[in-house]
């Protein structure tokens, strides 16, 4: 259940799972062996080229990620006409920054306002706007988030440290088709006149999923 990062120093500790750590470890090794066998087989059969696999991995490890989405958000904050374009045709507006293609073919931008907060989930699998956010984090794909984001979004937001007033309308978007959603977080106060690049530094991945807010400039090192 998305616990496959226990042993990789990501700062998570699961005391209640310690007892099956060994079991889990051997199971992971088993998976690693199964995947290795599969790759050998598919290469031998001429179905995949390992260099193409390397290229796919490198693309999503180094070139496609949430910094793309942050550029979209920063441009929308700095440029009302661009924000308007995003509202009317997010696919075209985002394509204008060259963020196109797989898992971003049909984009909708969701604009947070003082009265509304948007949050995105895929309860049925893991749909996520790859060209602007890269591949989804484990929690986004895991049962705790997928089960509760639709039923108790305010509780989920509190787990992420986001406390919204009762009067804010929380709008959850379950990505059940091929439409992909990008949240445009609210622009923080105290950023008037900032250039886009500096604005983008305040835009976190979670703020574009809707499980976070843009960073407070007072708390960011210059």
């Amino acid at each position: 259940m998305g616990h496959d990062h226990h042993d990789h120093g990501t700062g998570h500790h699961h005391h209640d799972h310690d007892h099956d750590h060994d079991h889990e470890h051997s199971e992971l090794s088993e998976t690693a062996l199964r995947v290795r066998a599969l790759e050998s087989l598919l290469v031998e059969k001429g179905y995949v080229d390992p260099a193409a696999l390397d290229e796919l991995i490198e693309t999503y490890e180094t070139r496609v990620g949430p910094r793309n989405g942050a550029k979209v958000v920063a441009k929308a904050w700095a440029n009302p006409e661009y924000m308007d374009w995003l509202r009317k045709d997010a696919t075209a507006a985002i394509a204008d920054l060259s963020f196109i293609g797989r898992q971003g073919e049909h984009m909708v931008a969701l604009e947070n306002t003082p009265g509304t907060h948007n949050m995105v989930v895929c309860t049925l699998c893991s749909c996520y706007p790859w060209p602007v956010l890269g591949l989804p984090p484990v929690w986004y794909k895991s049962p705790p988030y997928r089960s509760r984001a639709v039923a108790n979004p305010r509780g989920v937001l509190e787990e992420f440290g986001v406390y919204l007033p009762e009067t804010t309308s929380v709008r959850v978007w379950d990505s059940t088709a091929e439409v992909r959603y990008l949240v445009i977080p609210r622009r923080p106060k105290g950023t008037e006149g900032w250039p886009e690049e500096r604005l983008a530094s305040l835009v976190t991945r979670n703020s574009m999923i809707g499980t976070g807010l843009a960073l407070d400039p007072a708390k960011v090192k210059p």
Binding site: H5, H8, L28, V35, V138
Partner: peptide, 20 residues
């Protein structure tokens, strides 16, 4: 929810990269 404050690597194991 075991969230990560944006610190999570794209993949957690070498085999995940190849499976993807």
């Amino acid at each position: 929810i075991e969230h990560d404050e944006d610190q999570e690597p794209v993949f957690h194991h070498e085999w995940e990269k190849r499976a993807f």
